[in-house]
Design a protein around this nucleic acid. Structure first.
Lengths: 348, 348
DNA sequence: GGTTAGCACTCGTAAGAATTGAGTGCTAAC
DNA sequence: GTTAGCACTCAATTCTTACGAGTGCTAACC
């Protein structure tokens, strides 16, 4: 059986109708709403064919047709067209992003919020994977007699620090030497490389006099590095799910919420997704809890290198076209923002 | 009418029963379950009196009685006794807190998680209000030709930093002088005091040569101070609300979730609560969205000074006794943790 | 041969009626 | 003051009925 012009037109109408109404689509109402030029009976025949081909399903005998995952997949791959966003939305995104340039994490959080507000879906964003980020400078700073701060700056502009308490008095001199020495050893190394180096060893042999201080600093150095490698997950628009009739059932809403509250798994799942725009529909998500959901994600870049992700989650019946455009536009703008400022606010 | 011994006993039984079953309590089932030594008819008479006194309400004629807010208030104030926690829960709390000593914010977040797991309620915690925190040291650190990091350390051990890009080359010397000079001016001042000082002014007149650098640094200094003053709100156990029959209604669950997603208002509301254990029931919360909820909060201290809060939110029908004990024990332990380490992990 | 009108059939949903049962309030006797 | 007895109430459950949107099939039509 062939997916001819007319079948495609009918399928498209059904998908469109179902996406906006959430009601199974019947032949009669379809022929009334859309000017397809054929009678309901003909549409019925075509629908029956489309069902045989796996594009439609049937909740029960006397109900209308509902698009299958295969239909959405076809729609996403072939039918839907790239849509130009309305100037209004473009302006909102640009304005919100540029007006709120701030610390990287805050910007990402804000982008997620923006996304959920525009799409009326649940949105999420993860901060960049910093495995490829390189170390730039390491500093040990005196605070008081027994407290020093360890500060690590990476190429991407990320600054991390830990206050550490020593159980003996240090000299400023020794802090300085160790700082310089560490910067020398680690500068240009990626965070993951730095973590695999046999750290304490190198300092004990190199600088005998330093070894006491180094032994105190190193565990914290490792801990801070690990901390810098952590990917943060932000979510917004959690309650948007309640507007969907498919989640009018309390147990479904609950399952959805519970799945999202497992941030660790979710962050991992998102991290593992392909670069660029990626759409996964229902069972394609390979996750029991996501079998009725679709995910759309896209990647943004920091200085063209570090990669973070951002996207939405919602019922498989979602406005793929619009939402994909929004996400694409948003990530493009994000990458742009981070190209100019490195995610930090400039002087002024 | 007098709230005599027997009335009190019956009221207590009704409250206890309703808290655990969520079903209106009838005279017959009450007399069966609890050994009150009187017949259902007598209980009915007493119930009728208790209703007249405002302690019970009546969903409808043929339903059992439900405790009113006034009853809960009486229970919380006079009837309930301080309960000794089970050793198991004590151990869990102690273990979880001491095993996870880490950055302050992480510890608070972890405490909130722990609290929701133990109580099966929605928990929240806010980081300390740092208005009384004092500045300890301010540092400007060279990173590369045009980037410096501004680092601020406060007495409580909080370290904040911003990377800033200058539009001209600086000298290490000038950074040093400005750091020292800022530290000298601000050391010992509270964060809020520092914010009200006419900052740029003072540096322009004092150190002519510095004014260009200072002009670049100061806006960031102010911004970072403001950032340090921000109180963070953590929540956990959001989906616990679904286990309560009173939230089986999707619109109620939705309203609850929506109220909690407004983090700003919530943080404010919690900040404004009294110190120590505070219990507010239903309309006592003075908030339409909270009229069917009770809040229990308690305060923890950092080094005996800075004050943060932590608590739970749930239906008015909650196990006040148990939960209050848990929260009290938890905040005591938190304060203890922060007394020993200042919320930071020591050198090993 | 594709298209269409007609019609019997299906099945979820909404509305209404009957039944149940936990509970109250009142009265009269103990 | 306490209690047994009884009529009454009302939410919740179950059953029944009616409705209607929709299908699938058949036969006629172009």
């Amino acid at each position: 059986m062939d997916l001819n012009e007319r079948k495609l037109k009918i399928l498209q109408a059904i998908i469109g109708d179902f996406i906006s109404t959430a009601e199974p689509v019947g032949s009669r109402s379809l022929s009334k709403k859309y000017n397809l030029g054929v009678s309901p009976a003909t549409i019925r025949n075509e629908m029956s064919d489309l069902e045989d081909m796996g594009f439609l399903t049937h909740p029960h005998t006397s109900a209308g047709r509902v698009p299958s995952e295969k239909a959405y997949r076809l729609y996403v791959n072939s039918i839907m067209e790239k849509r130009e966003l309305s100037q209004e939305i473009k302006d909102t995104i640009a304005k919100e992003l540029y007006d709120n340039v701030s610390e990287l994490d805050r910007t990402i959080e804000h982008a997620a919020k923006l996304l959920s507000e525009i799409t009326n879906l649940t949105s999420f964003a993860i901060t960049p994977n910093k495995e490829q980020d390189t170390l730039k400078c390491i500093n040990l700073l005196p605070v008081d007699d027994t407290t020093v701060v360890l500060m690590i700056v990476s190429e991407s502009g990320k600054v991390s620090n830990t206050a550490l308490r020593l159980n003996y008095n240090y000299t400023e001199e020794s802090l300085n030497i160790l700082s310089k020495s560490m910067t020398f050893s680690y500068r240009g190394k990626t965070l993951s490389e730095a973590l695999t180096m046999d750290i304490i060893q190198s300092f004990e042999t190199d600088i005998e006099a330093m070894s006491g201080l180094a032994r105190n600093v190193m565990p914290n150095f490792v801990k801070t590095l690990e901390d810098m490698l952590n990917v943060n997950l932000y979510m917004d628009g959690l309650t948007n799910i309640f507007s969907f009739p498919e989640y009018n059932d309390i147990t479904k809403a609950r399952t959805f919420m519970e799945m999202l509250s497992n941030k660790k798994d979710l962050a991992k799942k998102i991290s593992n997704r392909d670069d660029g725009i990626m759409i996964t529909i229902g069972t394609e998500n390979d996750d029991e809890g996501l079998k009725d959901c679709s995910l759309i994600t896209a990647t943004y870049h920091i200085d063209g290198k570090l990669v973070g992700k951002l996207g939405v989650i919602g019922p498989t019946r979602m406005k793929y076209e619009e939402i994909t455009s929004v996400i694409e536009y948003l990530t493009d703008n994000l990458s742009n923002t981070f190209k100019l400022t490195g995610g930090k606010n400039d002087d002024e």
